[in-house]
């Protein structure tokens, strides 16, 4: 299984987690996080469009993956991120980490999420009946990096 995947196609987080777990024998802990397309308050999201920078995306995610492997002495890690058009409720992305013990697996999953939030070249656009708007980056996401 490729540890870093960027794809247009939908995926099943449960299936991905099982496949990942099968590749990390000896790990005592597996942690996963799935990001799901959130609807707007009024149920008004027609579609979420995710744009990315082919080439740089894979390069950035691979660097983040390798950094996590080393820093947390992981048995394995995977990152999967979609682009294209998504509907509310669709899984957008997931990360999974495997380690000897749970503390490293939890921390590594948070590390991966914090980094890919503001260091992987993806941009989200919400399309509603009233029009479309680019999702603004949040200062908290940038600040979250300072803890690592």
């Amino acid at each position: 299984m490729e540890p870093v995947r960027v794809q247009k196609a939908a995926f099943d987080p449960g299936q991905e987690l099982n496949a990942f777990s099968a590749t990390v024998p000896g790990a005592g802990a597996v942690v996963s996080f799935s990001g799901i397309t959130r609807d707007l308050a009024e149920g008004a999201l027609d579609v979420m469009e995710i744009e990315h920078y082919p080439g740089m995306t894979e390069k950035a995610l691979s660097a983040i993956h390798d950094e996590a492997m080393t820093r947390f002495s992981l048995t394995g890690a995977m990152i999967l991120h979609r682009y294209g058009r998504l509907a509310a409720g669709d899984p957008i992305m997931m990360v999974a980490t495997a380690a000897r013990h749970r503390a490293a697996a939890f921390a590594a999953a948070e590390f991966l999420m914090d980094y890919l939030k503001s260091r992987a070249p993806f941009w989200k656009k919400e399309v509603t009946p009233e029009g479309a708007r680019w999702v603004a980056a949040r200062a908290e996401d940038e600040e979250a990096l300072t803890r690592w």
């Binding site: 920078y53 992987a120 680019w134």
Partner: peptide, 10 residues
């Protein structure tokens, strides 16, 4: 070279 707004992955 690429220019873009702050990224919003995840």
């Amino acid at each position: 070279v690429a220019f873009f707004p702050p990224m919003t992955g995840g």
